[in-house]
């Protein structure tokens, strides 16, 4: 009798038997958190990019933009707090979901052949942490001035040019932006799916739009180190 009970497919489950999980404790809830925090971070990226592109307007314009920002501490700190929270929650959910992922399939396949998924979508667990590591360096580089290149608090323009004149650093930025772009390509449309929005007419368009936005963000960000390397943005117009 014992043995039978163990092999019974469906004993009574009941609401008491079904784990009474709170929304946040389900994988679905964590994905919703990732979606919301992810879209906040993506929104910041757009603003950040628009700000950065002012570098092409010249040293004065760019430095004035930076100065204006610093004169709005409420905006800057507000943004920083929201971003920190979003990043924290995004990473916290990721860590928990990564743990769930590995426990859900403890034995790997000897052969596994993906059928449809994009490289970007399968590598979110790699692109994410690499981008996070990049962000730490990026903050050291341009916010704290501890990135190993010349840094003057009053001259962000100069800092950028000095930073990107170093080929390995510029290349690292471009690569990081590539990974970020891949992460966005899957993350942006995933936002809708994870929050329950999918429609046969619009979802394919959303996926396309996500890819376009991801590429534009890559091109925008990557244009700056490339421009510095090619000498299009340089120190001596000063």
């Amino acid at each position: 009798m014992e043995l039978t009970q163990k092999n019974m497919s469906t004993s009574a489950v009941g609401i008491a038997g079904a784990p009474n999980l709170r929304f946040w404790n389900t994988t679905n809830g964590k994905k919703a958190i990732m979606a919301v925090t992810g879209v906040i971070l993506a929104g910041f990226l757009v603003g950040h990019l628009l700000g950065n592109l002012q570098i092409f307007l010249g040293r004065d314009a760019f430095n004035r933009y930076a100065e204006n920002l610093h004169n709005l501490p409420a905006l800057v700190w507000g943004t920083r707090v929201v971003l920190l929270l979003a990043v924290g929650l995004h990473i916290w959910s990721t860590v928990q979901l990564a743990d769930r992922k590995s426990s859900a399939r403890p034995v790997a396949y000897q052969k596994y052949t993906p059928q449809t998924s994009t490289y970007a979508s399968r590598t979110m667990y790699m692109s994410g942490p690499i981008v996070a590591a990049f962000i730490v360096y990026h903050l050291m580089h341009f916010t704290f001035g501890t990135g190993g290149t010349e840094y003057h608090y009053y001259d962000p323009y100069g800092n950028v040019v000095a930073g990107f004149k170093v080929l390995p650093i510029a290349l690292a930025y471009v690569v990081a932006m590539g990974l970020l772009s891949m992460h966005l390509r899957h993350g942006l449309w995933s936002f809708f799916q994870s929050l329950g929005l999918n429609h046969p007419a619009y979802t394919p368009k959303l996926k396309g739009a996500a890819a376009v936005i991801a590429v534009l963000i890559f091109l925008g960000f990557a244009s700056i180190p490339v421009a510095v390397l090619l000498g299009a943005v340089k120190q001596d117009i000063f």
């Binding site: 929304f23 389900t26 994988t27 679905n28 964590k30 994905k31 919703a32 979901l97 769930r100 992922k101 426990s103 859900a104 399939r105 993906p114 059928q115 449809t116 998924s117 994009t118 979508s121 399968r122 979110m124 899957h186 449309w189 995933s190 809708f192 799916q193 994870s194 929050l195 329950g196 929005l197 999918n198 429609h199 046969p200 979802t203």
Partner: peptide
Amino acid sequence: GQCGNIGECEAVCPKGITLENIARMNADFL
């Protein structure tokens, strides 16, 4: 495990069940 929205399930489903159904679950659950 969690849904990563990558669509491998949809690709192998012998009955062509689509990801739209997962979104509907997410919406209903939310």
